[in-house]
């Protein structure tokens, strides 16, 4: 986490935050966080959408629509991929470069097709 200005006990202000929405990657956003929720952000409407709703609709580890432990979800994924004949790994456009590199490593290991959003 970057150094934040502490306003009061529960409120912090982060300056020069980068907005992860579009590829303009504005790096001058000020984000106010209260109780681990974004309470104020000064970006465009798309940026506001990212930060103000960041805590909504979070996913949980699931298999077939049923909530499971994190380890079980990861194990199920590994089992499926270990037995796959022609797997596909797709996406990568909305995460950071470390995750993208891991996707390449996984694709190499399992002989997968690897594609990103450039192809659509």
């Amino acid at each position: 986490m970057v150094q934040a200005k502490v306003v009061d006990e529960n409120t912090q202000v982060f300056e020069n935050v980068v907005c992860p929405f579009c590829a303009t990657l504005c790096d001058d956003i000020t984000v106010q966080v209260k109780d681990n929720k974004v309470s104020k952000v000064n970006g465009c409407n798309l940026c506001k959408g990212v930060f103000l709703h960041a805590h909504e609709d979070w996913t949980k580890p699931m298999i077939d629509g049923k909530e499971v432990t994190y380890d079980l979800a990861v194990e199920e994924a590994a089992q499926l991929l270990a037995r796959a004949n022609n797997p596909l790994i797709y996406g990568l456009a909305a995460t950071d470069v470390d995750a993208q590199k891991k996707c390449v490593e996984l694709a190499d290991l399992i002989g997968a097709n690897l594609d990103n959003a450039s192809s659509v």
Binding site: P20, A94, Q100, V104
Partner: peptide, 25 residues
């Protein structure tokens, strides 16, 4: 469009030699 779609192309180029549509079969 997406904030790191350029990164996905760059990482794939750096790691595999190609920007997208790669097969390791």
């Amino acid at each position: 469009g997406h904030y790191n779609v350029v990164g996905s192309g760059n990482v794939m180029c750096w790691q595999t030699g190609y920007p997208f549509a790669v097969n390791f079969g």
